[in-house]
Amino acid sequence: MTKPLSIILCSEEHEKIQMAAMTATIAAVSEREVSVFVSMGAIFSFCIESPNGHRFSGGTFSKLMLEKNAPDALDLLKQGREFGKLSLYVCSMALDITGIDEAALIPNLFDEVIGLTKFLADSEDSQLTVF
C-alpha cells in the first residue's frame, strides 16, 4: 500500500498554495490517502472574505496563473475531497492568533480544527511535506 501523504501548508503565496493543492489532489485521486494541515498565513486564503482583500499573494507566476485561468487551488482541493481520500484540517493556533472565526472559513472544506501535535501524531507513518 502506498504511504499516506501529509502536507503542512503555511505559506500565503499563491504559487505554494497552488502547488500544495495540486500535489494533494493528484495524490488523493491516485489512490493515496492525503491530509492537509493549513496554518500560518495560508489561512487567509481559506477565508470566505480574505482579510488581505485578495485571496492570493504572489509573484509573476501567480499573475500568469490568474490571467490564464489555471485551475483554482481551492476548487482543486474540493475535487480532491470529492474524488479521493483527502482530509483538510485547520490549525487551532492560526485561528487563535488571527482571531478568525471557524465560520469565516470556506464552508465544507475542512474536516476539523486541530493542533499540530495531533496532526503530527496522525502523520507518523506518512510522507510529510511542508509548503
Binding site: M22, T25, V29, K68, N69, A70, P71, Q79, F83
Partner: peptide
C-alpha cells in the same frame, strides 16, 4: 485550453 491538472480532473469527473 485547460491547464494541468484540469484535463485529468475532467476525465475523473466524467468517469463517475
Amino acid at each position: 485550453g485547460a491547464h494541468c491538472p484540469g484535463p485529468l480532473m475532467e476525465l475523473i469527473a466524467g468517469l463517475r
